[in-house]
Design a protein around this nucleic acid. Sequence first.
DNA 1: AATCCTTTAATAACTATTATCATCTGATAA
DNA 2: TTATCAGATGATAATAGTTATTAAAGGATT
Lengths: 147, 147
Amino acid sequence: MRRETYNEFRRLCQKHSLAATHQRQKIYEALVSRPGHYSPEEIYEQVKQDLPSISLATVYKNLKTFVHAGMLCEVSPHHGSWRIDANHHPHHHLVCTRCRSITDLDFDSLGPVKLRGKLPSGFRLEKFTIEVRGVCKACTAAETKQH
Amino acid sequence: MRRETYNEFRRLCQKHSLAATHQRQKIYEALVSRPGHYSPEEIYEQVKQDLPSISLATVYKNLKTFVHAGMLCEVSPHHGSWRIDANHHPHHHLVCTRCRSITDLDFDSLGPVKLRGKLPSGFRLEKFTIEVRGVCKACTAAETKQH
DNA sequence: AATCCTTTAATAACTATTATCATCTGATAA
DNA sequence: TTATCAGATGATAATAGTTATTAAAGGATT
């Protein structure tokens, strides 16, 4: 692991009062040291090369721990549940990060996406999708109620 | 079901050579007749009120059929696998609709999202996420090879 | 070294989804 | 209409992805 990455890892663990274990170090490294966003299974396979006895559950648990601590974030808030879109008109999505509800947002509510420069060579563009993430009315209400 | 929706449904089934069954009609209606994007389980519960003997497998199978035919589309291409993001700098994602790989796109590659008008009242905005969907280099190569 | 609290590995349990298969239905043509 | 049959359905077994449980190990503090 690069010294810089290592230091960052130690700092983050300290900040969130997490033990800086060997396993966590390797999991963190597997995430940061290469491009792309891998599944827990893929991360497990990667870490296994250094720590053959690591358990898949440990990978899951630490990923959750990291996300919970805010050290990492989820790419999609909808893993674990398949959602279908029957709206054929161009539109965007409002996504509640609490209850994960999805509602449509009129296409014209947002300005068009503008491409500056080029996409990586070979990538064939199909469309842009904008997700507006935040907290929906119901969840906001539920939260303020509690205080 | 509204006559308009019903006609649209018949038309779509015909276009894709699918039998216009009761079950499909009710599933389609459950999707189009209300706002929001529901999980297969939620759609199943909804359809069950009209067709108590419908099977959950039928719901899944037809949703897949509809998506495959292009009558509907998936909200997120990453249901079924949890993806983690370790990149803390603001950035966007290139998503391959074939192999589902995700790669980072520099924040400045795209212009800023502009909000025209207002979001629905009560929605507390956290951030905009842009997904650039298309076919990655590897998958494009694999496809052209076959022809 | 003894104690306490956290983390780990192994694996059982659970949830979402898909496959299998016997039965039934819708579309077509007689 | 009815007969026919490819395609669709319902029941349920199987699988994949994820989470919970628990005994043992680690490591910090006294």
